[in-house]
Amino acid sequence: MDEPDWVPEGVDTSIPSVARTYDYLLGGAHNLAVDRRMADEMLRVLPGARHLVRLNRSFLRRAVTHLVRRGVRQFLDIGSGIPTAGNVHEVARAHAPDCRVVYVDKDPVAVAHSRMLLAGDERTDVVLADLRDPEDVLGRPEVKGLLDLDQPVALLLLLVVHFLTDEEDPVGLLGRYRDRLAPGSFLVVSHATDDRRAETMRRAADTVRRARSRDNLVYRDRAEVTALFTGYELEEPGVVGCALWRPDGAGSMADTPEDNTQVYVGVGRKPAPGERGT
């Protein structure tokens, strides 16, 4: 780590933060000039970036809606970012008002923001923690207080696993979450890939790196993203391009095929012991 840990990330306003940059790409104004600069840089290399984030958000809505229909009432959204249009609790509650959601992010600004927005809401909570420490996340009083881990929980990891390096062993890490979740729990992942437009994507990642962001993009191919679902049964249609996961209208798609498949997504269900054949 090249930054001493007493300068908390996200508070250092001289370097861009992933959360605020993402907010800008989505059309929000919770961002600073450094973030917009990085995003604009990224848009130059990858003009479809706005579509990628839009499609990801749209997938989030469809996935959460699907899970509520499947009976899920508890959500753990890690790497939740700055609250924006269509947050998990809003989508979920539109279908089932009793849903409970805990948001986790390691960016203190995103967390402070979420706290302000959700102040007074009994069925949501916000935690400043790191995805890379499952025991810490699941052991937090906010999590244990609001979510009953003996009951099925949906673990949402949208556009966050690709910030983990291979050394951090994402498959093993997700396994540690899975082992602590009750049968019938779900895992939702969206993850950028360079299976297509490899050169463009490499340059997109370079813009992030050059901006001295602390989180760097690690693309994974379809097999690697599928491996994240080890121990889960994939819901139809499996691990696919973002737009292809149960699209429900024009908003689920972009006009460029590459934009539609530049992010892999999937939803998996943890079976009860003995429930599964494989």
């Binding site: 989505l26 839009r54 749209s58 809505r61 249009a85 209208g249 024009a250």
Partner: peptide, 12 residues
């Protein structure tokens, strides 16, 4: 609109 920006609702 839905091709340009994220609107948090179904197409219908």
């Amino acid at each position: 609109l839905s091709k340009r920006t994220y609107l948090p609702m179904s197409q219908a």
